[in-house]
Each structure stands twice: as structure tokens, then as C-alpha cells.
Simulated scan of single mutants.
Amino acid sequence: MATLTASISGHSMADTAHINLKWPERYVSVIAGVKMGFSGLVHIFSSPVTSLFKLGTSGYLLSRGLTGHCELYEKVGKTSTEPVSIAIRTSVTIDKPREELYTFWRRLENLPLFMNHLKSVEMLDNGSSRWSLKLPVDIAALSWDAEITHDEPGELIAWSSVPGANLQTTGKVRFIDTPEPGVTLIHVVIMYHPPAGLIGATLAHLINPMFKKMVEDDIQNFKRYMDLSNSLPIAS
């Protein structure tokens, strides 16, 4: 094991720019590669086709673990060991006082009125809520619980999914007065954290542009909704 550690460490110092695997995943890849390679060698005569497949996979896993670089990860956009996340930031000005906009947004049940990617938001109590995300073409829905993490009346609302939620997400909206009376600038930041591993990296690569477009459209919908409304609707 000491030799293995030295080999991996030596390569990491020589080529850190291409490392996109963390240590636990690298060790698992090496161990799995050794086991699969041994199995392939043992059964090379009794099951040559299966054994050749195992040996090929073993070589890939060993290379993946020893170098710390995964070609599949790189192809889906994961080029470092940093966690994959989807961050969307957008701003818009709305011809409404910030207190009105804050009051409307703080009633979280209102969010699906302009956020098309949300199927529903149900308030469980004053700080807790259950969110349901509507995926494209309405192929499925994903639900998770969240809680308000910061609340400054008239100025800021921040929320986060609870630990262990199906989807790890955080969000923040800030309401800022502009020099023009009755006009508010809002800053919105929403982050999604896909699952770890290749599936998560693939999902992040594929849905990052999709989520960015959805959130930007939703904030523009918020502007249109508020500009056209003469009174604030109250969710039942």
C-alpha cells in the first residue's frame, strides 16, 4: 500500500493539471482494477471473451486510479476535483417598491406562478417548505424539503434544501432600491448540486445550460408578472 501511495502521489505532483478524481475514488479504482484483472487472468482460458473484457476494464481502472484522471469525467466537463455544481445568477429591475416584491416572494407558494420549472411549493411552517421541480416535457417531478436560512424583511430572502434532501439546492434573492422611486433591482442566485460521481458530473454538464435558461426566463416572467399586476395575488 505504501508503494501504491508513493506511485499515485508522484504522478499527482507531475501532472496535477489533469487530475479530476479525489483520493477515495482513485483508491477504489485501483483496488477494483486489480481484482478485475486477477479475475480476467484466472479465467483467460475458460472464458476468453469475458476475460479480455475484464482485462481491458482493469487497465482502464488502474490507469484512472494511478493518474487521477478520468477521460469520461473530462468529456462531460469535470476537469478538477472540485464538486460539480450549477450556479445561476441573474438580475432584473421591476417597477414596484421592494417591500411589495419581498412580500410576494416571501409567500413561497407564489413562486410557481412565474417559475415554470417549479411544479409547486408548499409551506410546511413559517420557515420550512416542500418544493417540487418539474423536469422538461413533464417526464418526472422531483421533490425536496427546504428551509429559510436568512430573512431580512424587505431586503433579502435566502433558502436551502435540508440535509439529505433528494436535491441539494440553495438560493438567495436580494431587493435593492434604485435611484428611480418605486423601481427595484433584484439579484437572484440559485445553485443546484447534482449527485457525486460520473452520473452527477454528466447531469451537471447536460442540465447546466438548461437550468440557466430556465431560471433567467423565470426571473423575466417575475418582472412581467409584477409589471402587469395591479395587486399582489395571495396564494391559497
Rank of each mutant, 00 (worst) to 15 (best):
T3F: 04
T3K: 11
L4H: 06
L4M: 13
T5D: 15
T5R: 13
I8Y: 04
I8N: 01
G10W: 06
M13A: 12
A14Q: 15
D15E: 12
A17Y: 08
H18T: 15
N20A: 06
K22W: 06
W23K: 07
W23F: 12
P24E: 05
E25T: 10
R26Q: 07
Y27R: 11
V28W: 05
A32P: 05
A32V: 06
K35R: 06
K35Y: 13
K35S: 13
M36Y: 04
G37L: 01
G40S: 03
G40F: 01
F45T: 11
S46H: 12
S46W: 06
S47V: 10
S51L: 02
L52R: 05
G56K: 07
T57N: 10
T57S: 15
T57K: 10
S58T: 03
G59W: 00
G59Q: 03
L61M: 02
L61T: 00
R64P: 00
T67N: 01
Y73V: 02
E74Y: 06
K75G: 10
K78R: 13
T79K: 15
S80P: 09
S80E: 07
V84H: 04
V84Q: 09
R89Q: 13
I94K: 01
R98K: 15
E99S: 14
E99Q: 14
W105H: 15
L108T: 10
E109Y: 08
L111N: 10
L111D: 03
P112L: 02
F114Q: 03
H117T: 05
E122Q: 11
M123K: 09
D125K: 04
S129F: 12
D138K: 09
A141S: 15
L142P: 02
I148Y: 07
T149L: 10
H150I: 09
D151K: 08
D151M: 07
P153Q: 10
E155D: 13
A158S: 14
P163V: 08
P163T: 06
G164T: 03
A165W: 00
T170H: 08
G171P: 03
V173E: 01
F175R: 02
F175W: 11
I176E: 14
I176W: 05
D177N: 12
D177A: 09
E180H: 11
P181E: 06
I186P: 05
I190V: 14
I190T: 12
P194N: 04
A196Q: 13
G197V: 08
I199Q: 14
G200F: 00
L203K: 07
L203M: 13
M210K: 09
K212Y: 08
K213M: 12
K213Y: 13
K213C: 04
M214Q: 14
V215D: 00
V215Y: 02
V215F: 04
E216G: 02
E216P: 00
D218R: 03
Q220C: 06
N221M: 06
R224F: 12
M226Y: 07
L228I: 03
L232I: 12
L232T: 12
A235D: 04
S236G: 09
